[in-house]
Design a protein around this nucleic acid. Structure first.
Lengths: 143, 143
DNA sequence: TTAAATGCAAACTATTTGCACGTAA
DNA sequence: TTACGTGCAAATAGTTTGCATTTAA
């Protein structure tokens, strides 16, 4: 059912999270969410599809899109707009920033407290701030 | 040739900028760049196309894509990844941040110095920072 | 049992490409 | 004059949709 080696306990925990959001547990949805939880490379739909179908076919592309849509709707995953033309997904929903390597394109998560509180001097009048995200660019450790 | 009312002087200035980058001046390229310089709504290709062809047809969609590609290559315009599925363009190349209204989707520029210097506590070892951009989310003045 | 999810294929949208023709320098 | 740009149409890539079939609860 799944090419990840996860304990039964963790499997239950993941399912519990999904149930708590009112989602029906299907093998496809579980595979997508579990896969996303176990990687930190902000994969595209294509990449998720390849990994979960690696050993034996489990989900179609349409189902991956569908699973991601509901998972996003209930707030278990979010999409990241860091790449041209493709949407990438992330199951890490606690606030954090992103570092993009301009050499190899790698995307690294940056803990929220790696940056201090953002000093906002002046927001245009009438604007209400609800959140922010910083995108850092440069060279990663491997480049 | 163009539905914008710009002075001959400004026209020359724009052409000079393009020539300085080694670009051949064609009506299509000029229209695209001049249009982009005169708006601040980070338009999509579709929006640019509509505006420059508003009075009389001047450019095809392929030419707008082509113009944007060269303009981007020489650094006169940049793309902004703030929207799902579409690439938006910006002729404002000096560093600035973006505010996205989560209600109406409007994208507003935020001057660089509206925010203070970003306090970077700890960057992972081996990472070299070259620049950053902040994306703020909330409600704009009209919502 | 049954409302909801899946899979497939077709539709759609954004973008790219190939090539004959036109034009800026 | 000629290398380069344009326009059109066809190709590609990412994503969405319609519908018959299957399945989780």
């Amino acid at each position: 059912m799944d090419n990840l080696k996860i304990s039964a306990a963790e499997m239950q925990a993941i399912k519990a999270q999904m149930k708590a959001k009112g989602l029906r547990i299907t093998p496809q949805r579980f595979a997508v969410y579990a896969n996303l939880l176990h990687r930190d490379d902000h994969p595209t739909v294509e990449a998720i599809l390849t990994e979960i179908n690696c050993e034996l076919p489990i989900a179609s592309k349409a189902s991956v899109y569908s699973a991601l849509t509901v998972l996003r709707e209930v707030g278990l995953v979010r999409e990241v707009l860091l790449d041209e033309g493709v949407t990438r997904y992330d199951a890490r929903i606690t606030p954090h920033h992103h570092f993009i390597c301009q050499n190899c394109g790698a995307i690294a998560d940056l803990d929220w407290d790696a940056l201090g509180e953002l000093p906002i001097h002046r927001l245009p009048p009438g604007f209400q701030l609800e959140g922010y995200e910083v995108i850092l660019k440069g060279k990663c450790d491997r480049c």
